[in-house]
Nucleic acid binder design. Sequence first.
DNA 1: GTACAACAGTAACTTAAGTTACATTTAACT
DNA 2: AGTTAAATGTAACTTAAGTTACTGTTGTAC
Lengths: 211, 211
Amino acid sequence: MIEELKNSYGTLFEDQLLQEILEVATYKEVPEGFKLIEIGDYVKSMPLLVSGAIKILREDTEGDELLLYYLEKGETCTMTMACCMGQKKSEIRAIAETDAKLIMVPIEKMEIWTSKYKSWRDFVFESYHNRINELLLTVDSVAFLKMDERLLNYLKEKVRVTNSSIIKNTHQEIAYDLHSSRVVISRLLKKLEKLEKIELHRNYIKIINIS
Amino acid sequence: MIEELKNSYGTLFEDQLLQEILEVATYKEVPEGFKLIEIGDYVKSMPLLVSGAIKILREDTEGDELLLYYLEKGETCTMTMACCMGQKKSEIRAIAETDAKLIMVPIEKMEIWTSKYKSWRDFVFESYHNRINELLLTVDSVAFLKMDERLLNYLKEKVRVTNSSIIKNTHQEIAYDLHSSRVVISRLLKKLEKLEKIELHRNYIKIINIS
DNA sequence: GTACAACAGTAACTTAAGTTACATTTAACT
DNA sequence: AGTTAAATGTAACTTAAGTTACTGTTGTAC
């Protein structure tokens, strides 16, 4: 765990804080698809992401989903912090997009470290700040863009996050993430294929050129 | 300014912090419609809202708008903090929805008070937390609801924030806030009038019963 | 190899929302 | 009172997206 922590957070946190983290944290490896947090869960520890990517989803009362954003190496789940402090239930669902490695910190430390370490405080503020900006981008996407553009952005982001030009998802799964329907997504993907931007296959999509 | 500050923040902040605020802050009264922050502005001070309401808007590259949420008494503009810390430009526009009274704090104090006062730290975290939840509601609204429901929610929220059952806006203004078109809003408002939920007039709408 | 279930393709249709165009109403001003 | 500009009403049409229904394809298990 030491190398993992130093690698991702070594420059961020001061030595004494790193030491404290090592003392209380647990290390966790989860496979792709693993559900880390469900809507309504009470959260007891805070995840520091060491490798991989976590996707954060919102769900409405009907069970319809929407992908909000991805968490990556060196980031944490701000929603979790928000939940912890208010002793509230989670507003979101978190699922491992790829295999992922996490350092789990008990939430009691939150308050303590926030007053004790400037580097921790900065990290927490930075996290909130980043998450708000991600949410603004999500709002932009849903409010201002049409489905074809949203789909293109989705594919781009997926390539970036998974670091692969092969997207291993069915059209139905993409439809869930974008809160659309399978037929609509198939239709738009077909258009992109005709423009020679992607290649469609069963269970995966090969990205050719989506600049 | 002392009464205003104590009234809105007296229970939130410890006496010494209240004292410090009084030493460095300036007091500001703005009329309805006053533009407090424009997209791209660099922000030099942080507003603590004492009375009135501020509406926070997002704009895309085409100039299309969307209302994100309202700030009310006892709240602050989290976006401003985020901007300050990163020395970034504002991502949003802020306009006084009603006449408003503000206490403006120079941003240099942010960092200092964050390490010095627990009450300030809690206030800042609470603000971030609240803002993220507001943004989630905005995402929900835009992603999951149809325009008629969004319009109804918009009217409800406006009644709450302005504390009046008379909404002094044209259909065009409402269309801007919801990122829709005037004709669509007129159409839906007419439906609500036929259901006897509202009464339409030139330049204002009277809310009868929107539970 | 055959059967099956999951996945993908596509046509035809419905609906919500946006657009265009024009008529009507209202408030404010001279 | 008459003029004007802004606001509102409404019809007719377009478009994006969602829905239904059915066909074809592919990978996997037996």
